[in-house]
């Protein structure tokens, strides 16, 4: 954070060092990166934007979307429910998307299985998401067809042309995309996600080197082998 006195001090020291000596060495650069990367200590989280049932549903969705596996934890471990709640508590429009979407999901689940999402079996939960994902793909194909068609000469000549009808699951598709993209973002921007992907950067060094073993790996598998 800007207000982290530790970071501020380091930066000031850096700036002074720069003026005086004209050179910041790689150790100093690395020091800043390490210091700014330190994680904040957090107390127990207090939910601000959602009812307990809503929050529970968000957490269950996040857990299904990015589940724990043998490499890393889940989106819940990475703080996705807190992330969604914090931003929703700052933005009514976003909160509205979740309130409405969660209610839609429960209504749809009741219709299909006679239960709300969190009370359904894991198989029923994933079955619901599979239906939404399939509908989303169809919807994407339909929109793409429409875009291309609208730009084409046919469209200019036959304005009565109609493409396929929009999916009746539209609200669910939209909501699922929101909860998915925010869960995915929360996961991959967390220390857990960064480690999962094995991102090696955001640090300073005095010399940039590309490792030979990486070069050999790619070349051997390329058409240039």
């Amino acid at each position: 954070m800007f207000n982290d006195p530790n970071r501020r001090e380091i930066i000031r020291a850096l700036a002074l060092g720069l003026t005086a000596a004209g050179v910041m060495d790689a150790d100093a650069a690395q020091h800043v990166h390490a210091a700014t990367g330190a994680e904040k200590a957090k107390g127990p989280y207090k939910v601000k934007a959602f009812q307990p049932h809503e929050y529970q549903t968000i957490a269950r969705l996040a857990e299904i979307i990015v589940p724990k596996d043998d490499i890393s934890g889940s989106a819940v471990d990475a703080g996705a429910p807190e992330f969604i709640d914090t931003l929703s508590s700052q933005n009514e429009r976003l909160a509205g998307i979740f309130h409405g979407g969660l209610a839609w999901l429960d209504a749809e689940m009741r219709q299909r299985y006679g239960k709300r999402f969190v009370e359904a079996s894991p198989q029923q939960q994933t079955r619901m998401l599979d239906v939404l994902v399939a509908a989303e793909k169809e919807e994407a194909a339909r929109r793409s067809e429409e875009l291309v068609y609208r730009r084409s000469n046919d469209y200019r000549q036959f304005s009565n042309y109609t493409v396929k009808r929009p999916s009746p699951l539209g609200p669910g598709i939209t909501f699922f995309d929101w909860v998915r993209k925010m869960s995915v973002d929360a996961f991959y921007t967390s220390p857990t996600g960064i480690k999962d992907l094995d991102y090696r950067g955001n640090r300073g060094m005095s010399k940039y080197v590309v490792p030979q073993e990486a070069i050999d790996w790619a070349m051997k598998r390329s058409p240039f082998a």
């Binding site: 954070m1 800043v32 990166h33 700014t36 990367g37 994680e39 904040k40 807190e82 992330f83 914090t86 931003l87 973002d185 929360a186 921007t189 967390s190 220390p191 960064i194 955001n202 640090r203 300073g204």
Partner: peptide, 12 residues
């Protein structure tokens, strides 16, 4: 040099 997780909003 900041990380997304240095912020509650992660950069959003």
């Amino acid at each position: 040099h900041k990380w997304p997780h240095d912020y509650d909003h992660r950069g959003a």
